[in-house]
Structures are given as structure tokens and as C-alpha cells.
């Protein structure tokens, strides 16, 4: 028996909007720790890891670890039917091939049940090693989204370079080149507006912009985003989900042969 009640149902709506274009089908894993997902895009270039900790749910019952295969497009369609202020409850019986989403309006005057078929998905969980990153950049998530969108109108790839001067995003395309430098800026009114650069070593890596633009669909989940970079390792683009967990996107770099 599984029963997860999330008072801030909009979080789950936003999570689905953030991942549904990157990943088609995925297993949601439910354990005492929380509700999680790990999945790669179809070309195995990017990986998404989601964790919503059990403590973040108003009610969290998961009698045994279960894995529920879902089509994320279909799940997003169902969650779109929940109001932004609705409380969302996920329910599944042991051995069942369906999951039920229950949406309750805040005043309890409207209650909806949506039942979705589960699917069998062969998923291989990857071990993500702990890594020491050469540089960690925290910046406003809206600023990062703006940079990715702007650069993708010029080129297909972005070179992210972190030096003591700041973090530089560069691209080139048929019509020309673009460089955007963000310097550390901690003298702002609100901490979430700061750009903070922790650098152990300078690092420069090349990535496909279209994946970054997909990751920025998670922008509504968090005011800030953290980029963790190390030479010849996938970048980690992390959006913290307040009081609940995180959504992390890993993107493999482009490397010269």
C-alpha cells in the first residue's frame, strides 16, 4: 500500500513539466527515504535524478519499496488537471497496475480521482560517484534560463569557463559569436539574487545547449540553480525543491577526440 499526500501539489505539477520533455518513460521509486526517480534521455546524454523526501509529505505511507513505471507525458496530462492550490495524493495498492492521483481543492469542495495505468519499464540505475568539483556556480535560475535561451539563438553548443574573473558562457554559430560573463555578485538585496562562484581550479567544458534549455524547464521550482563543473565529467545542474529535495540534471560534455 502506497499513499503519499502532498499539500503543495503544485510542486509535483512543476516537476513533471520539468522532466516530461527530456524523458518519456521512467520508474518512480518509493521507499522510506522518499519518492525518487532516476532516468536518462533517449540518447543517454543526459540523466535526471529527482528526490522528494518523505518528510516533505503531509502523509507518507510506503509499506514496502516499490517501483512504478509511468509515461511522463501521460502523468503530466493528469497532473495538469490539478489546480495549482490543490492537495495531491498518490495512491497504489500492492501489486496493482494502476496509480491513482487524487486532487483536493483547498476548501475541500472539489475532489477528483484520476487513475493512470502503470507500465513495465526496464531501467538501469546508474551509480553516480561522489566527485570533487573544480568549480561550483550558484546563480538566479531565471538568469541561467535567460542565458541558455539567448545563446541558443546564436549557436548549438556552449562553452562554460570558470576562472577567477567569473563564469563565462560562450557560443558561436553561422551569424557570429556571443560571450556572456557573470561575475561573483554577493552585494544584492536578496540572497537568491546573488551569483556565487566557488573555484578550486579553472575549468572549461563544452555542452549541447538544447539540453540546458530543457533543464531550465525546472526554473519554476527554485529561485536559484547550481552548476557543478569538473574537467571531463558531466556537469550537474541542480534545482533545490524547498524543504523537499532536489531535481538534478547531469549532462555529458562534448570532448575532443
Amino acid at each position: 500500500m502506497l499513499e503519499l499526500r502532498l499539500v503543495q501539489g503544485s510542486l509535483l505539477k512543476k516537476v513533471l513539466e520539468a522532466v516530461k520533455d527530456l524523458v518519456n518513460d521512467a520508474n518512480f521509486d518509493c521507499s522510506a527515504t522518499g519518492f525518487s526517480l532516476q532516468a536518462m534521455d533517449s540518447s543517454h546524454v543526459a540523466l535526471v535524478a529527482l528526490l522528494l523526501r518523505s518528510e516533505g509529505f503531509e502523509h507518507y505511507r510506503c509499506d514496502r519499496n516499490i517501483s512504478m513505471g509511468m509515461n511522463l507525458g501521460n502523468m503530466a496530462k493528469m497532473l495538469k488537471c490539478a489546480g495549482n492550490d490543490d492537495i495531491i495524493t498518490l495512491k497504489a495498492d500492492d501489486g496493482s497496475d494502476v496509480v491513482t492521483f487524487m486532487f483536493e481543492s483547498p476548501t475541500q469542495d472539489k475532489i477528483a480521482d484520476f487513475e493512470m495505468k502503470l507500465m513495465d519499464i526496464d531501467s538501469e540505475h546508474l551509480g553516480i560517484p561522489e566527485a570533487e568539483y573544480h568549480a561550483i556556480v550558484r546563480m538566479p535560475s531565471s538568469e541561467f534560463a535567460r542565458i541558455c535561451k539567448d545563446l541558443s539563438s546564436i549557436g548549438d553548443t556552449v562553452v562554460i569557463s570558470v576562472t577567477k574573473e567569473g563564469v563565462k558562457f560562450s557560443t558561436r554559430g553561422d551569424i557570429g559569436t556571443a560571450n556572456i560573463v557573470c561575475r561573483q555578485n554577493t552585494t544584492v538585496d536578496k540572497p537568491e539574487e546573488a551569483t556565487v562562484i566557488e573555484m578550486n581550479e579553472p575549468v572549461s567544458l563544452t555542452f549541447a545547449l538544447r539540453y540546458f534549455n530543457s533543464f531550465t524547464k525546472a526554473t519554476p521550482l527554485s529561485n536559484t540553480v547550481t552548476l557543478s563543473l569538473s574537467s571531463e565529467l558531466p556537469v550537474v545542474v541542480e534545482y533545490k525543491i524547498a524543504e523537499m529535495g532536489y531535481i538534478r540534471f547531469y549532462l555529458a560534455p562534448k570532448i575532443e577526440d
Binding site: V45, P234, Y250, L251, A252, I255, D257
Partner: peptide, 14 residues
């Protein structure tokens, strides 16, 4: 020319 790597080149199966 930079070649796109796959995630599986960095992270092994559990």
C-alpha cells in the same frame, strides 16, 4: 571537433 559523450561513459550501472 568535439564529440558528444554519453552519461554511461562516466557513470556505471549499479
Amino acid at each position: 571537433v568535439n564529440q558528444q559523450r554519453q552519461i554511461t561513459a562516466f557513470f556505471g550501472k549499479k
